[in-house]
Amino acid sequence: MTDSEFIGLINSNQATINYLLNLYVQDKIEKEDLKQEIIYQAWKGKDKFLQKSSFNTWLYKVSLYTILTFKRKNEKFIKVNLEIADSNNNSEELTNDNAEQLYQYIRGLNPLNKTIITMHLDGFTNQEIAEFIGVKANNLKVKLHRIKENIKLNLK
């Protein structure tokens, strides 16, 4: 992959980096630090991208790996209660509100639970998530089930 091809791909996929950074990092300066580090690591290892998966999936894993190994501290995001106000009758607003609350709730989880649920929601298989974290797929299935149950319980 040439440098210009790489820059083009990063340009069109940088939303993935920002999306993950917003999920895991609160501090603005640290976000900038990590964004540069992700792009630097991806650029250095661009020849390792073997086109077995899409560039976006590859960049997702590189970004998450870099964030989890470089991240400075376990930031305390504000925990969100997913209960919806009964008084709200507008269904569209209700959905938007619900979705935003779900996002904030997941943002507030610890890095382990957050990694499991976001990778799952972003379409990775249990096997892929288990390999990424370093656990057995069956163990992960149980944990994922618990996290989803917790979210559902809060959404009701």
Partner: peptide, 24 residues
């Protein structure tokens, strides 16, 4: 609404709001 659908919705919103030229 299913968690997956809610997530897709909110992810699209966040990703859409975050495109543009690479700025390092």
């Amino acid at each position: 609404m299913e968690i997956e659908n809610l997530w897709l919705e909110i992810k699209c919103k966040h990703v859409k709001a975050d495109t543009g030229k690479l700025n390092v």
